[in-house]
Write a protein that binds this DNA or RNA. Structure first.
Lengths: 295, 295
DNA sequence: TTAAATCAAAAACATTCGCTTTTAAGATAT
DNA sequence: ATATCTTAAAAGCGAATGTTTTTGATTTAA
């Protein structure tokens, strides 16, 4: 036999237990004394248990009542938490998040998914651009929060991780052996100056195989083994691999992945999104964690 | 505005989410398809949120639905736990507990109180007697569980603690200096032979000041500083103290406090009572724990 | 002790809620 | 396209729940 308790009644029950009187509780609950008395009576009938000691003024809990009180409190709390989560204004809104296009994959889709599961009524507007453009947008207030890839960090930023830039090519490809080394780069790519400098210092001849604004074009070119590219470790797309060049190509400088917009207190929503981002980039960026996750 | 969820509806909601269909869930719930549909509709109206994705065959949860599911599950579990605790036959009954009268205080009242709070619908019949009588009762099956004070332990027993027997007298009293040493003992007291033997070995002259069946009489006699008594350390009654005799009286043998009746599997009730007893006598019996509790 | 006051339970009544039955509509598979 | 499965909507009915009013019991004050 299934017996379901009624949250309304449980709320009354808790109020009576806490106030020590039906009438007092009724006032607080905006109900009649009669209504509350009947609720308690029904509750006792449903469970076939004496919940109150009605001798003397007021009303006192029996041991059974104490037990129920424990559950009633928790159920009311759960109820209110659920209702708040699903209806409260505080849990709806819009956040604009800017992310450099080369680190969108694979962390960001996962973050967006997690965040949407936690706050379904919040729209996250994802802006994917270059670090420089994103910082400008953020400065104008057009983005609530941005990620950047840079070697330094500004005062108001938070470093999520530091990872080496690394050489990327087609799986099993040999484009990296060619001289001049053929490079594929986006027109506004922040990494290009660093890469060029490293190649020049190592006295490796190079040329641009393609210069475009399209990530797809770069990926296609590299995937066809016509050129090499550089990306931050851990952000390699599915069909490209890190090149195991054994020292034939120069080491590239470390890059920071920084977060701006988390410091200024913007409420639970922003905090939560920032937290998801932190976790995602710790995982992507750290070999230690990656190994643990695989075990 | 207070919105209370309905456990019946939440149960249906969970069933629908888990079965992936209103009709299937309705069958399982012994309800009409219509009833369940209306419940879901009311739920969505109450929260003003879309819980389901109704495109295509069956029904799938939205992100909001997933969130609610999380709470709904927990609320249903709490509900069922509460109902079980308060109505299930398994949580009512009677247990007969036998305790030697000299170790009833102070542990047993506390244990009975705790146990009654945890299982209000179980009557605990407390039998207070001598260890020998209790073991006889237990052997006849008249007691479900007994504590004993003895130097050894039987095969089917469980040792709760080992504590020295110690000399007890009136606070600040001097009865323990008198020779012959005046003793107050119950007629069936298990400790007497051990005490007498220890005194004889130490060549201390003694006599019985009182021999009675009444604990009150003994307490009164000792409290009036007319005699001394022995008790297990940690079970001294309020108005009697341990005697600091500085070696003038012989050391007395250690006593075990044993529990019988816990080994045979008798269900959660007995297990729980046994556990309370174990904890109570660890606390009473161990100085280490007593110090920790005081800090 | 009596009278007033406070508080909980009971009776009568009205409203709302929630379930079943029935009917209609939409989607899928053969 | 038809048959089948599934959900949605409408109508009817009974039960549940809350309000008002009354009764009874216990406490407080005179």
């Amino acid at each position: 036999m299934l017996r379901n308790l009624d949250v309304t009644t449980l709320r009354s029950f808790v109020a009576v237990a806490e106030s020590g009187g039906v009438t007092r509780a009724a006032g607080f609950l905006h109900l009649t004394q009669s209504a509350v008395s009947m609720q308690l009576k029904r509750l006792e009938e449903l469970l076939d248990v004496k919940l109150f000691d009605r001798s003397g003024r007021g009303i006192a809990l029996t041991a059974e009542g104490e037990q129920l009180l424990f559950y009633a409190r928790r159920m009311v709390v759960l109820n209110d938490e659920a209702v708040t989560r699903l209806t409260d204004q505080a849990f709806e809104g819009e956040i604009t998040l800017g992310v450099p296009h080369d680190i969108v994959y694979p962390a960001i889709p996962m973050v967006l998914k997690q965040f949407h599961a936690a706050f379904p009524r919040v729209k996250v507007q994802l802006i994917s651009s270059y670090t420089r453009a994103l910082k400008a947008e953020f400065g104008r207030g057009a983005c609530d929060m941005i990620l950047t890839t840079e070697t330094g960090i500004d005062d108001n930023g938070e470093e999520l991780c530091v990872r080496p830039l690394c050489w990327i090519g087609a799986p099993g490809g040999s484009a990296w052996r060619q001289r001049p080394l053929r490079l594929a780069f986006g027109r506004h790519c922040t990494f290009r100056p660093h890469v060029v400098e490293a190649l020049d210092q190592a006295r490796i001849d190079w040329e641009l195989a393609v210069e475009t604004d399209s990530d797809r074009t770069i990926e296609a070119t590299v995937s066809a083994d016509l050129a090499v590219h550089t990306m931050i470790e851990g952000t390699e797309p599915p069909h490209l691999d890190r090149i195991d060049h054994g020292g034939a190509l120069p080491e590239l400088p470390f890059q920071r992945i920084n977060l701006y917009g988390a410091a200024t207190l913007r409420g639970e929503l922003h905090d939560s999104l920032a937290e998801y981002l932190r976790r995602a980039f710790v995982r992507v960026g750290s070999n230690k964690v990656r190994v643990l996750a695989a075990s």
